[in-house]
Simulated assay, not measured.
Amino acid sequence: MKDTAAVGLSAAVLGLEIGTELARKTLAEVSRTDHVTPPAPAAPEPPTEKEISIRAYQLWEQAGCPEGRDKEFYLQAEKELSEKETLSSMRTRPALNPE
């Protein structure tokens, strides 16, 4: 009986040591990955020509449909949409962990 108990105890101790070693390895792997810098967020997509044209038309209508100012409204629409896209991408960025 004593031999069986000793063998059982030895097996339990060996199992604990193996488990502890595995836990150390896993902890070391997790520690290494904790300090990895997250990838930079993707640059916002520029507005499409169709989106710019639609917005330029809206601006043109709001201004009373003046003649000869199509380029002005197109550039204004492009600027508005680009700024809007940049702002929305900044709002959706995940918060970085300062630690």
Score class of each variant (00 low, 15 high):
1 M>L: 11
2 K>L: 12
2 K>V: 05
2 K>D: 10
5 A>G: 00
6 A>V: 11
9 L>Y: 06
10 S>V: 05
13 V>N: 04
17 E>L: 15
17 E>H: 03
17 E>W: 13
18 I>V: 07
23 A>Q: 06
24 R>G: 02
24 R>W: 06
26 T>W: 07
27 L>I: 02
27 L>E: 05
29 E>R: 14
30 V>C: 10
31 S>C: 08
33 T>W: 06
37 T>W: 07
37 T>S: 13
41 P>Q: 07
43 A>T: 06
43 A>P: 05
45 E>D: 07
46 P>S: 12
50 K>W: 05
51 E>A: 15
56 A>L: 03
57 Y>W: 08
57 Y>N: 12
58 Q>A: 14
58 Q>Y: 05
58 Q>F: 03
59 L>W: 04
59 L>F: 02
60 W>I: 01
60 W>A: 01
61 E>Q: 12
63 A>V: 06
67 E>H: 09
69 R>L: 09
69 R>M: 09
72 E>A: 09
73 F>Q: 06
74 Y>Q: 13
81 L>G: 03
83 E>T: 03
83 E>W: 01
83 E>K: 03
84 K>E: 15
86 T>I: 12
87 L>V: 10
87 L>H: 08
91 R>C: 02
91 R>A: 12
92 T>Q: 14
92 T>I: 08
97 N>E: 12
97 N>H: 10
